[in-house]
Design a protein around this nucleic acid. Structure first.
Length: 124
DNA sequence: ACAGTGACAACAT
DNA sequence: TATGTTGCCACTG
């Protein structure tokens, strides 16, 4: 709540198309905070069953993995498996070791105008 | 206000 | 190549 950063993260994640993925670090970079990767993960952790608390809209958190294309919830087996299944349901090939091919599924990213919207810019 | 924490990432062995 | 260690940022008591 009152966390502008969280909302920015959610806004970006919501733009990731099904079947594609990106990393925490890339999202941080898009938001102009190249070193805030951990904070991005923290933001997703604050989600309630995949919905943002603020507006309750869905946030496809499963499309965010670490920089080497591996599901980062390995410390939480259940959640990690859940994420893997959600991705597979979207057509993403996830190995038993919870890794996927970044070169193949990487999301190109936001367009400049989309990013401008999220950052509160008012399309000039 | 201060110290601890965590769904990361880059660097160093 | 495979671990271990060190910064980083924003959030929480």
């Amino acid at each position: 709540m009152s966390n502008n950063f969280y909302n920015e993260v959610y806004a970006v994640v919501r733009r990731i198309p099904a079947g594609q993925v990106t990393s925490y670090g890339r999202i941080a970079h898009m938001l102009g905070r190249p070193r805030a990767a951990r904070a991005v993960g923290y933001a997703l952790n604050a989600l309630e069953e995949g919905r943002s608390r603020a507006d309750g809209t869905a946030v496809p958190w499963q499309r965010v993995v670490n920089s080497v294309g591996r599901i980062s919830l390995v410390n939480r087996e259940n959640s990690a498996q859940h994420q893997a299944e959600l991705l597979r349901a979207e057509g993403v090939l996830v190995t038993a070791e919870l890794t996927l091919d970044m070169d193949k599924y990487l999301w190109p990213g936001l367009t400049l105008w989309e990013l401008d919207e999220i950052l509160g810019g008012h399309g000039s």
